[in-house]
Amino acid sequence: MENTTVVIAGASGFIGTYVSRRFAEDGWNVRTIGRSQRASAAWGDNAAITTALEGADLLVNLAGRTVDCRYNRRNRAEILESRVSTTGALGRALSRCSAPPRTWLNASTGTIYRDARDRPQTEDDGELGEGFSVNVARAWEAALAESPAPVTRKVALRIAIVLGPGGGVMRPFAALARLGLGGRMGAGAQKFSWIHVEDLYRTIRFLHIRKELEGPVNVAAPAAVSNRELMRSVRRAYRMPLGLPTPAWLLKVGAIVIRTETELVLKSRWVEPRKLLDAGFTYRYPTLDGALNASRGRQG
């Protein structure tokens, strides 16, 4: 893999840090774009971004403000702007390159689909939903599609909830389990699609090689679980035998207190990775119990 170069935009977050480290471990030259002083290029420095992209083999954009917050007017604007503006900036920089990357993998979200409780949502027959998060995802993917990069293959990564060591998404679930409140949330039938961060990294490597895969790609483990099953696995991972259920009204009150939204646990996300499965991708962590144990440094 000598002299193979990847550019990672948004490399300072949980996913970006992990993916950057894994590429370096596998022998890639890693360039980064972000707000860190260690980044190869900073947002707003268009010349530096173009230089970082010049001659690279792969661009992976993971930039975007966290959605773990209350959706007030200011936060909504920042969430949208941080995704659309960075994607647009990368597209403009690619158009200035004489030797741009041949593949551009741009983060999106599995939340783009509707609240699905009747059937899984694939790339071909999935139905897009409504609301703020869906509108952000639509705008994010539109910015990718409209970017002037004629020789670069574009793939929107519709990523499910990402699990892994140090990841912040599971902390509220773990906290509830430790307090004895690790039962179902709301009705408990809503689906939870997820992927371990190592399998996300391996998906990125897989898509770089499989040049025929284009358009949106669902990035999720092969089998979603219900919220009831999710919390049962969380209790097992944290060795809590019992967990009281949390009704929807109490979750909404609690979300205000801890300054977040209930969409994470109450919306049914049933994302099926049909393109990856049809292309023969294999998962290192196909089961939720295995992924949670690996995230906590345990095997099995």
Rank of each mutant, 00 (worst) to 15 (best):
143 A>V: 02
34 G>R: 02
298 R>M: 10
288 L>W: 03
132 F>V: 05
166 G>K: 05
217 V>Q: 07
209 I>V: 13
289 D>H: 02
250 L>H: 04
21 R>V: 07
274 R>N: 14
70 R>L: 11
223 A>S: 11
233 S>H: 14
67 V>C: 01
115 D>K: 04
170 M>I: 12
275 K>T: 09
51 T>R: 09
253 V>Y: 00
46 N>W: 00
122 T>A: 01
3 N>A: 14
218 N>S: 10
184 R>I: 00
87 T>A: 11
271 V>P: 08
224 A>N: 10
292 L>W: 00
14 F>L: 06
112 I>D: 11
298 R>G: 03
128 L>A: 03
117 R>V: 09
115 D>I: 01
40 S>H: 05
215 G>C: 12
102 R>Y: 01
86 T>L: 13
12 S>P: 00
53 L>G: 04
274 R>L: 11
132 F>H: 08
250 L>Y: 04
22 R>M: 13
202 R>E: 10
9 A>L: 11
139 A>W: 06
216 P>V: 02
59 L>D: 13
84 V>E: 12
6 V>F: 02
284 R>L: 07
205 R>E: 06
135 N>S: 15
84 V>R: 11
238 Y>K: 02
127 E>K: 06
47 A>Y: 01
266 L>D: 05
262 T>A: 08
42 A>Y: 02
271 V>W: 08
221 A>D: 12
52 A>S: 13
237 A>E: 01
114 R>K: 13
58 L>V: 14
281 F>P: 05
101 P>I: 05
242 L>F: 12
282 T>N: 11
192 F>I: 07
185 M>S: 01
81 E>N: 13
197 V>T: 02
231 M>F: 05
259 R>V: 00
217 V>N: 06
62 L>N: 08
60 V>G: 08
200 L>I: 08
196 H>M: 04
102 R>D: 03
278 D>Q: 10
159 I>Y: 05
227 N>C: 07
144 L>E: 11
47 A>L: 12
116 A>Y: 06
29 N>Q: 14
182 G>E: 13
6 V>I: 13
263 E>H: 11
121 Q>K: 05
262 T>E: 13
86 T>E: 14
